[in-house]
Simulated assay, not measured.
Amino acid sequence: MRQELINEVEATGNELLETVSSFSEAQINVSPFEGSWTPGQVAEHVYKAADCGIVYGNTAPSDRQPDEQLQAIRDLFLNFNAKYPSPEMILPTQESHEKAALLQDLRERWDNLINAAQTVQLEDTCLDFVVYGFGPFTRYEWIQFINTHTQRHIHQLKNIKAKL
């Protein structure tokens, strides 16, 4: 389970960095259409959402399979026809973004996520935050939540790229 998780997180991180890298410096702050985030804003949102600090917080032993909610997480985020409002705490700013700084921040954030996937007790349940509609996640599910959420936004970035 652990090695498969590490492989998935590494693959998503590589795809994220490649996708953000594909934008020119000029494109990073361009909205493809009215009401859309810029590529820089999407990258900032992913950066904020990929903070894996929750997996290092308070935990308890779990009484269920550590991946029990994985399919529900994937069903939520990989349904590209559905639109969801972002929680305020991870909304991007209106500030201009620099591509190199975004890539460095994302690379560091992703290194932290890979480290978590490599080292934490994946079966433990995280107690400090609950995603509405799900109940408490295991550490494995939190890492997959971050990973799958990022896959959703990689898809969004590719759509933006096609419009620019």
Rank of each mutant, 00 (worst) to 15 (best):
D111R: 08
G35T: 12
L17F: 09
A100Y: 09
L76C: 08
P92L: 05
H155Q: 08
V30C: 13
T125V: 15
L78D: 08
F33W: 13
Y56C: 00
A82V: 05
N29D: 10
S24I: 03
I73M: 09
E88P: 13
A26L: 08
R139Y: 00
P32R: 00
Q3R: 15
F134T: 02
W37I: 00
T150Y: 10
C52E: 00
E95F: 05
V55Q: 03
E108N: 15
N115K: 14
E4L: 12
Q144T: 08
A26E: 15
V30I: 13
I154W: 06
F129Q: 09
L106I: 00
T93Y: 09
V46Y: 11
F77K: 10
Y140S: 05
L78H: 07
G57D: 02
H149R: 04
P66R: 11
I154T: 04
C52H: 05
V20Y: 05
E8Q: 14
L113H: 03
I6H: 05
T19A: 11
V30Q: 15
T138S: 15
F129M: 10
E123F: 02
A82K: 14
Q27H: 04
E10T: 09
H97F: 13
E4Q: 15
N79P: 03
G13P: 13
P136T: 04
S86V: 14
R152S: 05
K99P: 15
F77T: 01
E25W: 07
E108S: 12
I160H: 06
Y132E: 14
L5E: 07
